[in-house]
Design a protein around this nucleic acid. Sequence first.
RNA 1: GGGGCCGUGGUCUAGCAUGGCUAUGAUACGCGGCUUGGGCCCGCGUGGUCCCCGGUUCAAAUCCGGGCGGCCCCA
Length: 479
Amino acid sequence: MATAVTALNKFKNFSDWFDKLLFEARIVDDRFPVKGFSVYMENGMFILRTLRQLLEGELARTGHKEMMFPLVTTDELFAKEAEHIRGFMKEVFVIDRAGDRELEKKLVVRPTSETIMYPMFKLWIRSHADLPLKVHQNSNVYRYETKATRPLFRVREIPWNEAHTVHATASEAEQQVREAIEIYTNVLNKVRIGYLLLKRPDFDKFAGAKYSIAFDAWNPDGRVNQVGTVHNLGKNFSRAFEIEFETRDGRRENPHQLCYGFGYSRVIAAIIAQHGDDRGCVFPSTVAPLQVVIVPIYFKGQEEVILNYARQVLDSIRDGVRKKLDDRQDVTPGEKFYYWEMMGVPVRLEIGPKEVAESGVTVFRRDTLERSVVPLKEVGEYVEQLLEKIDANLAMKSRRMMEEMIGDAKTLNEAKTLIANRRIARVEWCGKLECAEVIKENVGGEIRGSRYDIVEIPKNGCIACQQQAKEVVYVARAY
RNA sequence: GGGGCCGUGGUCUAGCAUGGCUAUGAUACGCGGCUUGGGCCCGCGUGGUCCCCGGUUCAAAUCCGGGCGGCCCCA
C-alpha cells in the first residue's frame, strides 16, 4: 500500500515527509526529467506569487525600482571581478553553440546578476545626483549544483528576487544594509518563519563581497536553510566594472554597492518544513492558497437542507477571504478532513444536521487541531479573528523551536553531539581559519556566523584552540 | 572527491539470487450500487517502451558493460 504522507513523521523522516508532501499538496512536481529542475504546481505557484507580492510591496515602499535584465552575460564580463568568478566558475551553465554553429562568444547563464547589471550601472551613473540607485528584479538564476539536489532546497533553477543598490558613501551603504534586513525581516515575519540573522564568517561570504549577512531558517532535520542574504560589496565591483560618479566637489569616485537576494523556493520550503506536521501542510493565512474550507456532512434525505445551510455559512464569510465549499457527495467527510488538513487549510467549518438544528457552525483550526462551536451569526467575524490567532501561534511556535534547537557547547565533543542530535551548536571561536576547519571536521557542521541582530560577547576561549575567542558563532549543517 | 543501495502502470510495490506462462498486488482514475460526524464496503472497467543504450542467449524486468536519474553514508 502506498505510504500516505500522514504515516510519516516530520522530525524522524524529514526527507520522505517533505518530498511526499510537496507532491501531494501540489506544491512542486519533481518528476521533470532534468535533474534539479522542477515544476511549480498551482499551490507552490500561489505561494511563490504571494511571497513575490509581499516582497515587492516592501521594495516599492523603500524606493526600489523594478527592472528586468537579460538572462546571459559574457565570459569577459563574468570574469571581471576576480573573487566572483572564482566563487561561481564551477557551477555556471555556459552556452557555446546555436544549432550546429559554435558561438564565437560564449554566453554565461546568470548564476546571479552582478555581471549583467553592473555594465549598465556604469552607463547610468554619472554624478552623485544619480545616487542612490536602487533596482530589483524577480528572476530565475541557474547554478549547476554538483551535490545531490533537493526539491526547493537545492535546485539548479532558482527563482528569487535580487536587489542591487549603489551609494555615494560607505555610511549610506551601511544604512542600506539595515534597510535590506528590515525588508526581508518584514516578509519573513509575515509568513511566520523562525530564523537566525547571521553575519557570515569571512571565508563564507559572497564571492566578491566585503561581508555578508544571511537569514538562516531552521529545518526539522537540524540543518539550516539560507532563505535570504544581504551583501555589502564595498567598492569591489564598482572598481572592477569601472562605475564612477562625480562628487559634489568634482572628484571622481567609485561608489559603494550592495546586492541582496531573497530565495522564493527556500522560503516556500521553510514555510512547509517549519509549520507542517504529520498530517501535512499548515499554512499561515498570509500564504494559504485556501484559508477556509467548508465541509458539509450529508445524511440521507437531508442533503438539500445541509447543503443550503453550508451555502449560507459560505456567504457569511467575507469575500476577501479565500474560501471554498467542498460539496462533493461521493467523498466521505473523513476523507475530506484528511485531504484539506494535508493541504494546509488553516480553518475548516463542519456543517451537519447538528449544526443545522442549532444554527451553529463547528470550527476546526488546523494548527492546534481544536474544534469549537460558534453561532452562525458570529462565524464570519470569528473566522477572521481566528486566522490572525493561528498566524500568531505559528509565529510563536516557530520562534520557540528556533530557540530550542540551539544549544551551547564548550567542547568539540559537546558540539558534535548537538549536531548529531539535529541541533545547532553555539560556540566561541577565535576567528582563525584553521580552527574553523578543525570545528568542521570534528563537529560535523560548519560555522554559519555570528548574530547580527544582537551582540553576544565571548566569555571563554575558542572551542578549537582555547585561545582568546573573538566571537560567538553558530555551527550547523546546511543545505 | 570516495563508498554503498536503488530505478517495474499516475503513485507505491511483488518478481530478479537460480533467465522461460498473459509481469503481482495495493492505491489512483472511470462507471454503477451502498454510505456519509475522521481515509467504509461491493461489482465492473482503464492504465506498463519493467530508466536509457549496447552486449550475452533459442529466450532478458531478471545476467554483463556503459550512461542517466534517485536515496544514504564518509571526506
